[in-house]
Design a protein around this nucleic acid. Structure first.
Lengths: 241, 241
DNA sequence: ACGCGGCATTGATCTACGTCAATGCGCGGC
DNA sequence: GCCGCGCATTGACGTAGATCAATGCCGCGT
């Protein structure tokens, strides 16, 4: 479960070749022409982050933007008293750096080992201004993220703990499927229970209890760094409710 | 409190003139050149909606996009069993129609009397494709909305009922201030308690109790369709926590 | 093979908020 | 000017999920 071949292999086949980048389809750099990709490649810096290392912190000046090529990134905000809300997990193909203004308004750190393409923000915005293609992709990505955020609001505001966990698993399954090209009942969960709790607006104990209850009634099977969906239909029914 | 002159007067001074539109500054049509505005004006249709009338419903095909020129619009999603999450309130100057795909994924209806500029979606996307200016504005607006949505996630997932209500009031105050050009301790609340509850992930009773508790300890004063902030400092301190 | 440290699980109890049920009240219609 | 309706408030009580406190377990380094 640790090593999904599609996910673990480097996103970039040869140094600074965007054409060969396997996350390009489904990423913000999809639908760029060959010569545009060449420009992009010349600006790209390969970056690697060990587990728990920060890509950036809330309040940092935005110097770089990132395309994730492998691994999972945790995006979160902290309240002054330490309460944390995870606002999302960035997966391969996701773009980081939509921040308005010149400071990040959330923090991002690597859940597992993360590889990313880094661009200077100045270069990237210049490119976006020059290439309406790319701007259009960024716009679509932002609108997509917004739709996800709105779904998450419904989840946080109006769903029970069990529904939250089930929706979380189904949505993650779908995102992995989009990345790997085929849906699987094995859902990798590289993040820990605390991350999931902070994403769903629950405590770690409630998340844990919900997982064991779902496992007890054979809806899921807990495996080492993930979960196997044993009854996706039932889950879909609960998520639809 | 019902009639903020800035808010109640029509957004458009003369029919189909975007140049004279008072919400333009701060809206998505800001920063368009004079001739671009002329094109925009030729495409605009003035639309009016009585209280509770739908601008569109979740699942409707996207035929129009809107710029709100006066009034307040409630944006919400429903679960199959009737639970409702209000995902936002659109105020004068706000743009509606970022929906991905060709169906709306949320519903929008008028809280009070609403005036809007309607554009055919096809015209609007064509214009955006032709004018990178406008696309850039749309992108910025989407990124701004995303930032708001992320703040709302923190609120929904990690804040107490009292904090939720206080943050709600302060954020609304700031948005009105941006629209009217000056901050006021009088915060109009055209939406009802149920709307506020569904926005904050609470019940109407909890919202009501929280308002009366805040009024009892002189933090706010309840007035007919709004609230007067009597102790903004204390509120800011709680919101910051 | 052992022990240690981080994470996850489990149980007992507490509480913020939800639910249910009246009651109040302002506003618009007649 | 009164009535009725939709919204808001208030109170009594219930509960999902939080909190507090062990205990279990797995992987990793020595």
């Amino acid at each position: 479960m640790n090593c999904h071949p599609e996910v673990c292999r480097s996103g970039i086949a040869t140094a600074n070749s965007c054409e060969a980048c396997w996350v390009r389809r489904g990423s913000v750099c999809a639908a760029l022409s060959s010569d545009e990709l060449a420009v992009l490649a010349s600006l790209a810096q390969k970056a690697e982050f060990a587990p728990k290392k920060a890509l950036f912190l809330q309040g940092d000046r935005v110097v770089s933007v990132f395309n994730i090529t492998s691994g999972v990134v945790r995006l979160y905000k902290l309240l002054a008293d330490g309460r944390r809300q995870v606002i999302g997990f960035a997966l391969p193909g996701d773009f980081l750096g939509l921040a308005r203004g010149d400071a990040y308004d959330f923090s991002a750190d690597a859940v597992d080992h993360v590889s990313a393409c880094a661009f200077s923000r100045a270069d990237y915005t210049a490119l976006a201004d020059a290439k309406p293609n790319l701007l259009r992709q960024l716009y679509d990505f932002a609108a997509h993220e917004l739709a996800l955020a709105q779904d998450q609001m419904v989840l946080l505001g109006r769903r029970t703990a069990e529904e939250k966990v089930i929706c979380f698993l189904l949505r993650l399954q779908e995102r992995w499927a989009r990345i790997e090209g085929n849906a699987s009942v094995m859902v990798p969960l590289p993040m820990n229970r605390q991350d999931i709790a902070d994403f769903l607006g629950l405590t770690i104990e409630t998340v844990s209890r919900t997982f064991t209850r779902l496992a007890r009634d054979k809806t899921i099977l807990n495996v080492s760094h993930g979960v196997r969906l044993m009854n996706p239909d039932r889950m879909a029914r609960i998520a639809a409710a």
